[in-house]
Amino acid sequence: MEHFNAASEEALEQTLLSCLRSPRWCRRVAEHRPYPDLDSLLAAADEAAYDLTWPDLTEALAAESLPTLPPGTYSAAYTALSAAHAAYEARFGHVFVICLEGVPRGECLDHILEGIRSRLTNDPEEERVVVAEELRRLARERLVHALRGAGNCASNHNEPAPGR
Rank of each mutant, 00 (worst) to 15 (best):
A86T: 03
H145V: 07
T121G: 09
E9L: 10
Q14Y: 04
T15M: 15
P70I: 06
G93S: 07
H145W: 10
G72H: 01
H32M: 09
A49I: 04
S18H: 11
M1Y: 14
L38W: 13
P36F: 10
A146L: 11
H157F: 15
A77H: 02
R105T: 15
S8E: 08
E159H: 12
Y78R: 15
G102L: 01
R27Y: 08
P162V: 11
S65T: 11
T53W: 05
L109E: 12
L38K: 07
A43K: 10
D37E: 12
L52V: 01
R117F: 06
E13L: 14
L52R: 03
P23V: 08
V103H: 02
T53K: 04
Q14I: 00
A77K: 06
A146K: 15
G149T: 13
E10H: 11
A90R: 14
Y74H: 13
L147E: 12
P104C: 00
A44K: 02
P160W: 13
W54K: 02
A132E: 05
G106E: 09
E59W: 00
G102M: 12
A30I: 04
L69E: 00
A154K: 03
L81E: 00
G115H: 03
N122E: 05
S155P: 01
D37R: 13
R136Q: 03
